[in-house]
Design a binder for these strands. Structure first.
Lengths: 208, 208, 208, 208
DNA sequence: GATGAATGAGTGTTCATTCAT
DNA sequence: AATGAATGAACACTCATTCAT
């Protein structure tokens, strides 16, 4: 199904992790080869170059992301439940694929990288369309407001989550979350709840 | 006032810009020295190392940030106006100091960097305290809800803004913002309004 | 007849061309395998090593060279005609086998290469003997000088030709030879005539 | 006078020698740095790249070559003596600068190298003009033939010499030159004499 | 007999830093 | 106080070759 074989996937996963942790420039192919327990030359051999490896990660993850996102809107529940489900899914997906979102946000925003932005934008657009559909459904049922800026919903969800996660150290201290398990739990409960509340306040027609 | 002399500040400003554009690892001290029109050795000479230079940027900007943030809470307006003002200020500050926020978010979240996190956390905590004060003021006046998770307000503001800004390319296309001026204007109007609305929905006591 | 099979010969021909164009070190076995449309491992498999491949080229071409050279001296014409024929043949052969002569001159003169010089020297010596025979024939007929340094005749012919050919770019400009056809034609006429004249002046007894 | 400092010249000389012996691709900058007893990084530091180093050699030697060549034609001797002197000078110069001539012939004739051919062609043209002047002088004095192809004289001299030199191994055996001193002596005497004779036969008007 | 996978050594180059002055 | 020169380590990548199949 994927265009990558077993060993390539092993490399992709190690690379994804290290890129997310240390950045693209901060990760050498030697670092990757050491962690993945393969020869340095294998990366060039399998992917052609370090940049192509990055693109490989995107292709590998991108296919997955789009697929998972599509299920939510086809369920037979109220638009509000769909929105809540979408927020949950969004957070879950970003959390699971934190690595690639991290990469996307730090590497794609850099001017120097000559990456094919379309690799990501197509996924983004697809997700946007799904969201639009749900919103319109709620509007037709008069449950949602009419003037909703749909485009700003995804960056609100993703941004809030990532900003929180990237300041892990600070929030663990501030909120007294003594270990990573508590931190993860906080994300799953309080943060998710917080974001759900935000998004609902943006879309639900309170004046009804 | 600042512990940096004129030449050091010139270096700091160039470094800040380049770090934000290309990342810490993606920027060589030669790049910096070329743009700043100084000798390569100057950076090690003045700052000790490249990492110390990054810390220097934080110290240099941090002092500024804290200072500007404190003014808002001392004004004699309603808590709601203070919150609105704070959101505006937040966005304005992040927008102006995008560079350092970019750095903070991409470099501080990396495990490999041995940076003194306190350099930033102290500013964050100070800002948090200011926010707490405003919220409490509103709660005493019964204008704000009682159960507000104040800690999640800053990451919501900052995260949403940065996520939007970092996907500049995508949003310019999606929203038909043909040039950078229109993009900036969109941030100043729609995005700021969007974030204000979110934060207000989080704090204002609607049941009143 | 040749000790090489069809696939080996295909490789030899590609390698000969690429070695002549880019040098031995400037040509990778991957370059060769790509052009020859074979697997990289084939070269080591068939020839043992890259150096052995070079020797293979020499063996392959050398056999040919010696063969063609022998015909000229057996014809029933005057020694002068034989010399003229020999010059023509020399130039024609070098021109046709420019590739291998190029290799021979650039790779054999290098100390680092551990090539079996005898592979070539035997051909050179055979050719030298043929030349000696013709010269002696002319001397017996009192048409040629008695004090002829036969050893210096071949390097004069070959050297002049190669030096001219290797400065193709320069001579095309200097002589106003606008395209390669004109350049080739110049070699066939003026240059060949020039070399013939030189060699004849070296051997023919003018005082007669 | 030269645009190179002492250390750069040391590197240039080592590089010239190694390039001539092993070719451009056959010489690594580590080889050079080892022989020159300098750090590997110095070559990039001083010359920018390996290719620029090669160009440096050409610039360094080229200036010298042109200069030395100009003296011969200004002497107050017969045209024949001038031609003889020129041949001697040519051989001496090529012999001394064998390295760079070797490089010129093997690297410039390769298509892959993107070298500024003008670096050499200007020297070649200057030398050609000097030769033309001497020939014309002899023609005016009716000592030289009228139909002389001046362009073919330099490649005859250079080519014959280089072809002989590059087959050193072969000629030492053929001519019984037991050591390098004898080989050098042969070049200085027999080979030089041979080339002088050739060139004179090309230009001198025998029918006078 | 033939080949894709894999390897360790090597490539040119750039890196942050230090040194002598 | 300031800098050009210099360095060793690291960089991404390519090399010829070997090996398991």
């Amino acid at each position: 199904m994927t265009p990558f074989n077993e060993k390539q996937i092993a490399i992709l996963q190690v690379a994804e992790k290290l890129f997310a942790e240390n950045g693209f420039d901060g990760t050498s192919i030697r670092d990757i080869s050491k962690v993945a327990n393969i020869n340095v030359a294998m990366i060039s051999y399998y992917f052609g170059s370090k940049e192509k490896l990055l693109e490989g990660i995107i292709v590998y993850r991108g296919a997955n992301l789009k697929l998972q996102m599509e299920n939510i809107s086809n369920q037979d529940v109220t638009p509000i439940a769909k929105i809540e489900g979408l927020v949950e899914l969004y957070i879950e997906l970003i959390h699971k694929n934190k690595c690639i979102y991290q990469i996307m946000n730090s590497e794609f925003s850099k001017q120097k990288r000559e990456l094919d932005a379309n690799l990501f934008n197509s996924t983004k657009k697809a997700n946007f369309q799904i969201l639009v559909k749900i919103i319109e459904e709620g509007q037709q049922q008069n449950i949602f407001k009419t003037n909703i800026n749909v485009a700003l919903i995804p960056p609100t969800i993703i941004g809030t989550y990532l900003q929180f996660y990237n300041s892990k150290h600070y929030y663990k201290e501030l909120l007294g979350l003594e270990n990573d398990v508590l931190f993860e739990s906080y994300i799953h409960n309080e943060l998710t709840q917080h974001i759900k509340q935000i998004i609902k306040s943006l879309v639900i027609n309170e004046s009804k």
